[in-house]
Design a protein around this nucleic acid. Structure first.
Lengths: 140, 140
DNA sequence: CTTGATTCAGTACTATGGTACGGGGTTTAT
DNA sequence: ATAAACCCCGTACCATAGTACTGAATCAAG
């Protein structure tokens, strides 16, 4: 297994050096071996994979906190595939809910555009109405 | 039209009092009338609708800055229609960009879920594999 | 062996979107 | 009329996801 300095690891993973240290501080990647006479990190190439995993999961809409959980599942030999699948399904549902709302918003905007040929009267401007009717709301 | 104190408005809109003042500072909602002998805000119920709109739009991935622009579309019917129309078109494009982004996320999640055996250890978990092996470089 | 590049830890700073607090003034209910 | 509850403004603080900077230590090349 190849050993990498932080900057080599950063290049291979496609992130900045600071980002790696940031992930380490956040507990997303563990601090690698540091040789006794140096404080320098020596990364196994596994770490590069982990970082890529993080970026990939971010692309799918997972937050770093959620990714941390995914990584914990990954590290636990008792984890069943269904656990991971469950999280992916939840995320998919989240994504799909957003898409459908954006569709509504898109049609509201289209109707605004259509009903506004070139002269006054924005009475048909109903972006809010379109959204109001579709939202019974989340708590905080 | 009902008149509300800030806390009543906050409750109706499902946000905190501080959030309303924050939106006001940000220019998302306008400061309401304040009776002469009091510094207290008196909100029309319209404001509640605006706040709900803001929350809704945020859920869809709009930033407060973008939402401010969306709100500007709805406001002021005296504005030239063509101008409003232009901004509406821009927002529509933004919405469509968001949809396609989320769509990509959704398909990625779906394909990963579909190929998951949904039981067993992670050795055979295609979701984890997908997250790891993907060397699609998004550059930064 | 010296120079320049890299790395270290720690902290500060960015932007976004709030949330909390402190020390007042105002309203309202009893 | 007095206490509880509410509201004011300003400022400080929180999380998220990094990015930048500092001064000292270490490493790699000539």
């Amino acid at each position: 297994m190849e050993i990498l300095t932080i900057s080599k690891a950063a290049i291979q993973a496609g992130v900045g050096v600071e980002t790696i240290r940031f992930y380490e501080r956040k507990g997303l990647i563990r601090q690698p071996l540091k040789p006794q006479n140096s404080g320098y990190r020596n990364y196994p190439s596994d770490t590069v994979k982990t970082i890529r995993f993080i970026r990939q999961a971010q692309e799918l809409g997972f937050s770093l906190r959620e990714i941390e959980e995914l990584l914990a599942l990954k590290a636990d030999p008792a984890t069943d595939c269904a656990d991971v699948r469950e999280r992916a399904i939840e995320k998919l549902e989240e994504v799909e809910r957003k898409i459908s709302q954006l569709y509504k918003m898109g049609s509201a905007l289209k109707s605004v555009i259509a009903s506004c040929p070139s002269r006054g009267g924005l009475d048909g401007c109903s972006i809010m109405e379109a959204l109001e009717s579709s939202s019974s709301e989340s708590e905080r």
